[in-house]
Amino acid sequence: MVDMKPTKNGFGEGLVELGRRNPRVVALGCDITGSVMVSLFKDAFPDRFFSIGIAEQNAAQIAAGLSLAGFVPFFSTYGVFASGRCWDQIRTTICYTELNVKIGGAHGGISVGPDGATHQALEEIGNMRAIPNMTVIVPADATETRKATIAAGEMLGPCYVRFGREAVPSWTKEDDPFEIGNANLVRDGNDVAVIACGVMVYEALCAAEELEKEGISVRVVNLHTVKPIDTGAIVSCAEKCGCIVAAEEHQIYGGFCGAVAEQVVQHCPVPMEFVAVDDRFGESGDPEELMSEFGLTSSDIVSAIRNVLKRSGK
């Protein structure tokens, strides 16, 4: 049985670790400090935590100012707000000026569940990757979220890390490599490649195992950094397998699948299928029910693989 752990815990733990490594790291709270696990940092470094209240635009601006004063500020709130409410501040003040501000986008994806569409962040990857100078990371599990948070704090420049609330399989290993911009090959295979981010990487691995029984060899790539994108890893998938499925817990337009497809059509055109939310708002429900309702499970990946294999004449 694989351990289950919310990726937001990885964010909170990573932030504390960063705080220990670098005294210039500070964190801002937007009222939901406990919910997004910034409370761990607040408890460990009370003098380096600043409450901003329910004011995301100002949180982004204060963070910008703190970075101008030589700090490494993190602000974190639910992804719908972190990537949406203060998008203009992120674009013009933070990214255009290339400020060293880090954004923790919590409650990413449909799996937030009962709160419904208003709180289910499904557009952040598109919102953030459209802006020049921004780095966007969607880690696969809690362990990787911890590493991604630390890496975000140690790189120079704006960075958005997306994570979720629900307990999800914690399957990556402590000693697995994590480097911003370098995808991880997590399963080798040569019939079809699944390129995924976030929780969809685990779903892809489950799909691969199921199809192995039928003799279909599935390559799985954890493309945790959406921007800057690892073009080489994508080209290798196309060259080795000849067809690709991309999978994300996010809107189908403008997000991760689109980012992968942009590279595929430019450098290595092969048939592709997308597993993503099909251009609709979320709704209330249990996380598991919603993942199934919105077509984001391993069986949806299996179907997409069968389709893309058929299109490839395999």
């Binding site: 100002n58 982004a60 601006q61 100012g65 004063a69």
Partner: peptide, 15 residues
């Protein structure tokens, strides 16, 4: 946006 940026710098200087 500038007032908040200024507030952030001012906060940093105070720290």
């Amino acid at each position: 946006q500038g007032l908040g940026i200024g507030a952030g710098v001012a906060l940093g200087l105070k720290i």
